[in-house]
């Protein structure tokens, strides 16, 4: 059996996931990376993307996370993110409607901050849909 480490995903609302796992694959701001047991200490920003976890029983679980940070420290990996949806928890209709409204908001004339917000919302909705479709 492969070595494992503890992995947690925490949002302001709850601890979404906490278990010992074999590997984690995430999208950092500098590109995709994987974490295995014994990884060197690392702190990084992660993108709004899909995070793939392989747990101790060799099952993969996927999460859609909305930006945030990931820390690796002595076989403890923590992800802090604003929202996190597990595979199968995605409300496709809601994601679609959010995508539509975000797309409309981007086309509208607005301040740079509003545009950025809309783009973030679009990325989030797209990630949700991607998670739901696979």
């Amino acid at each position: 059996m492969a070595k494992t480490f503890t992995f947690e995903i925490i949002t302001p609302e709850k601890v979404v996931y906490s278990d010992s796992v074999e590997s984690v694959v995430a999208d950092g701001t500098e590109g995709s990376f994987g974490v295995l047991a014994g990884h060197a200490p690392l702190i990084t920003a992660v993108q709004t993307s899909i995070l793939t976890v392989t747990d101790a029983n060799n099952k993969t679980v996927r999460f859609a996370i909305d930006g945030g940070f990931l820390e690796v420290m002595a076989n403890n990996v923590i992800v802090l993110t604003d929202t996190c949806l597990k595979e199968g928890e995605v409300d496709t209709e809601k994601a679609r409607s959010e995508k539509d409204s975000a797309e409309k908001a981007i086309l509208k004339v607005g301040s740079a901050g509003e545009k950025e917000k809309a783009q973030a919302a679009l990325r989030r909705a797209n990630t949700w849909l991607k998670l739901a479709n696979k």
């Binding site: 500098e30 702190i43 920003a45």
Partner: peptide
């Protein structure tokens, strides 16, 4: 801490992003 961290992209950038979040939370 026994070892130095790896920072991605860089420690300053992460602090810059993390810090407002910290105050908020």
């Amino acid at each position: 801490l026994q070892r130095e961290y790896i920072f991605e992209p860089s420690a300053d950038k992460i602090i810059e992003a993390l810090f407002p979040k910290y105050i908020e939370t």
